[in-house]
């Protein structure tokens, strides 16, 4: 039995090597083409809006019936909910990651991480339903608002949604810092909190940035949950920092309106342009983050 296996594998491996190689190359190519195609299709279909509306796209009035397609209100909403979500989720998530990675025993860490990853798998529409049925009502009562469907509600809901991502990837980042650095630091007589602040966190910086980036992508792109709780009105509040009013994000606008438009109409084109704007935003933020947190800055491998 053993001899047979040994004699088969070397001959097969020459073949399977070639097949495996081709398979991997083709898969990579397909993935790359899909990404390029998405960008290309978005650009082609938004061209009508770009070429005819031009600067009018960056006004704050969206009224397809009158031919006005200003996306500023949606752009504002998207940026605002993302900023709120990250402002809440980063400190909370990092503190939890520090707990699971630095303070929790190895055995418990495994279980806690398992539960967190389960949390990350909950479909977003469930968050949305809980948000619209309970959370927005509580928030409305708490702040004595006219309606609990606000930009803040969406931001907090998003924070809860991206929290597992930040915690579990943040925990990995901290855990990957090699033991010898901690031991050396401890050997120099540093307190545990000094080890964390001066040794572990700076070393894990790059990977933590990666976790935040992934959370940011999810927050910007989340549709269903946001759509249900944000109120759906294309308005920029008179005071830019007043987040307890209803608003609209790019994704919630797309979710609500794309089906109502005729394919390839100006309305459709303007909506696709918003999609393109979202893509550009994500790409730009990714590029900036990668520039500042280059993997090359890592001290360990």
């Amino acid at each position: 039995m053993k001899g047979k296996k040994l004699s088969v594998i070397p001959v097969m491996s020459a073949w399977s090597n070639r097949i495996g190689r081709a398979y991997i190359l083709i898969s990579t190519l397909i993935s790359a083409i899909i990404i390029l195609l998405i960008a290309l299709v978005l650009f082609i279909y938004s061209w009508e809006a770009i070429s005819q509306q031009r600067a009018d796209l960056f006004t704050s009035i969206w009224n397809p019936a009158a031919g006005q397609f200003g996306i500023l209100a949606m752009l504002y909403g998207s940026l605002m909910v993302t900023v709120i979500a990250l402002a809440i989720a980063i400190p909370l998530g990092l503190a939890t990651a520090l707990f699971t990675s630095e303070m929790l025993g190895v055995r418990y860490r495994f279980h806690v991480k398992f539960l967190l990853e389960l949390l990350a798998g909950i479909p977003s529409v469930l968050y949305g339903l809980i948000g619209v049925a309970f959370f927005s009502v509580w928030l409305g009562d708490l702040f004595d608002l006219q309606s609990g469907r606000t930009i803040l509600t969406a931001g907090i809901l998003l924070a809860i949604m991206v929290l597992p991502t930040i915690i579990t990837l943040g925990d990995d980042a901290l855990h990957n810092v090699p033991r010898q650095y901690r031991e050396a630091a401890q050997g120099l007589g540093l307190y545990p909190h000094e080890v964390i602040i001066h040794i572990v966190l700076p070393l894990a910086k790059t990977d933590i940035a990666g976790a935040v980036l992934l959370a940011l992508g999810r927050a910007l792109g989340e549709t269903m949950a946001v759509m249900l709780v944000i109120g759906g009105i294309d308005k920029i509040p008179p005071s830019l920092v007043n987040i307890m009013v209803p608003g609209q994000t790019i994704t919630s606008k797309l979710g609500r309106e794309i089906e109502e438009t005729a394919f390839a109409s100006m309305h459709f084109s303007a909506l696709i342009f918003m999609g393109l704007a979202l893509l550009v935003m994500v790409l730009a933020l990714t590029a900036i983050a990668q520039h500042y947190f280059r993997p090359g800055l890592r001290l360990y491998e």
Binding site: V132, S136, V137, G140, Q146, S147, G148, R149, G231, G232, I233, D234, P246, Q248, R256
Partner: peptide, 19 residues
């Protein structure tokens, strides 16, 4: 004058009920 812009009858009904 609108504060919220919603979609179908159920969504509208829920929002009126909650307020």
């Amino acid at each position: 004058g609108a504060d919220l812009v919603l979609g179908d009858n159920n969504e509208e009904q829920t929002a009126v009920m909650q307020s």
